[in-house]
Computed example of a mutant assay.
Amino acid sequence: MSVPTFHPSHSAVTSRLRSAGCVFAEDEAQLLIAAAHAPEELDRMVDQRVSGLPLEHLLGWAEFCGRHLAVEPGVFVPRRRTEYLVQEAARIARPDAVVVDLCCGSGAVGTAVAAAVGGVELHAADVDPAAVRCAARNVGPEGGEVHEGDLYSALPVSLRGRVDVLVANAPYVPTDAIGMMPPEARLHEPLVALDGGPDGLDVQRRIAGEAPLWLAPGGHLLIETSVRQAPSTAALFELAGLSAEVVHSDEFDATVVLGKLQQSHRK
Rank of each mutant, 00 (worst) to 15 (best):
F252N: 06
L236K: 04
V109D: 08
P73T: 02
E88H: 03
L53T: 15
C104S: 07
P39T: 01
L215D: 06
P231M: 06
G144T: 08
P174Q: 08
V192N: 10
E121V: 14
L221A: 05
D27G: 13
Q48S: 13
A154R: 01
Q48H: 09
P212V: 13
S264M: 00
P54D: 10
L194E: 14
A116L: 10
T82Q: 03
E238T: 11
L32D: 06
G66W: 08
E26G: 01
P217N: 12
P190T: 10
D250Y: 04
A234Y: 03
S2V: 15
G140A: 05
P231L: 09
E210G: 07
P171L: 11
G110Q: 11
D250Q: 13
L42Q: 03
P141E: 07
P183T: 09
D96I: 12
G52I: 03
R49H: 04
G140T: 07
G161W: 01
V77G: 05
H10G: 14
E26V: 14
V157G: 12
A230T: 02
Q263S: 12
S232M: 14
G200M: 08
V77C: 05
P8V: 13
A112L: 06
V257T: 06
G21T: 10
A130W: 00
T225C: 10
A240L: 11
V86T: 14
P78Q: 01
R18A: 15
G74H: 09
Q204K: 04
S9N: 07
P78A: 08
A97L: 02
A177M: 14
Q87K: 14
V50Q: 07
R49C: 06
V13W: 00
I207V: 15
A97I: 03
H57D: 07
E210Y: 09
A135P: 02
C65R: 15
E145L: 14
E224V: 08
T225W: 04
V109M: 02
Q263F: 00
L55A: 05
Y152P: 01
R67F: 11
S11P: 01
V146C: 11
M45Y: 06
L55D: 12
L42M: 06
D43N: 04
Q204T: 14
A177F: 10
V98S: 05
R44S: 14
V13H: 00
V98G: 04
Q263H: 14
A125Y: 09
V173S: 08
A136V: 06
R228W: 15
A62L: 07
S51N: 09
P39R: 04
